[in-house]
Design a protein around this nucleic acid. Structure first.
Lengths: 152, 152
DNA sequence: CCCGTAAATTTCAGGCTTGAAGTTTCCCGA
DNA sequence: TCGGGAAACTTCAAGCCTGAAATTTACGGG
């Protein structure tokens, strides 16, 4: 099918990454569910936890690599749960920052600790040297082919 | 926050995998879109391409690691497009096998070739030795913690 | 000041995904 | 034979996700 053995191995690596990520996400999703939340909401909280002063919707969607239209209802739900609040931006009424509430920050700290434990458990068979090897190997991919080029 | 440096590196590896997978999937999704299909449909076709005699819905959902309720409408759509057909199973009317049609097989062959090229392009910076290192490192994870254990 | 364009966000239709409940069919033991 | 599970699949409500259109606000040249 393919005459290039390196290409075949790269494809195999991709399929392995896909499967590994799906399995891990499925496991995390189940545990988040037990903990009363969902993975996407946790991801939002994690991003906001790094920005104590809040984050614009656009920054949030870029940071999470999800579309803008997705962020709105996600933040809506977290807001309804009292974990996140939207704050107006002085001088630009188009924007609004999402920020963790006190309750949201506390909730995130508790979840993050458990999350880290779950990951360590699931990846526990991978030794430190292997972790470093994997990180080094994956550092260069994927090559961004649809990168926006500076104006001609 | 965490006193265990290995645990932190494992978490970092997981975050890296998540980001890499999301970026790659986003790129593939965009290209599949241009090609007139979607990633989930391609995944179904890829699974069916390995089973010339067809695959039960249950096998398909296990193979793709998606829920059963997901497979039904996916196969429905592929069937509507004439790429997949459901064939009855003699002796068990509960089951039905999904199988690529001639048109579906041809479509898949064309897509698969392009798909392999896209992957090779996106992962082109990763050399053969690094591919092997990554595959070796990731071979052991994730440890299945919710594995169904044989009846007590 | 006013208009055109651009930016930030929301809205929207359509599709994907899950977990749970519902159907139909099979199987097996009494 | 027949009745209770169990298995295979579908249906369903809810949520996630995208890309595109719509909305609101900002900004800059004339």
């Amino acid at each position: 099918m393919s005459g290039d053995p390196v290409a075949r191995r790269r494809l195999r690596l991709w399929l392995r990454l896909l499967r590994l990520t799906r399995e891990t996400e499925a496991e995390l999703r189940a545990r988040m569910r037990e903990a009363g939340t969902t993975l996407p909401r946790f991801d939002v909280m994690a991003a906001l936890a790094r920005a104590p002063d809040g984050m614009g919707m656009g920054e949030l969607s870029a940071s999470l690599k999800v579309s803008g239209g997705n962020v709105t209802p996600l933040v809506d739900r977290l807001e309804a749960e009292g974990l996140v609040e939207r704050v107006a931006v002085a001088g630009d009424r188009r924007r609004s920052l999402a920020r963790l509430t006190e309750a949201g920050a506390a909730r995130f700290r508790a979840l993050a600790a458990r999350h880290a434990g779950w990951i360590d458990e699931m990846f526990g068979e991978i030794g430190e040297a292997e972790v470093d090897a994997a990180l080094a190997a994956l550092a260069k991919a994927p090559k961004r082919t649809t990168a926006e080029e500076p104006a001609a």
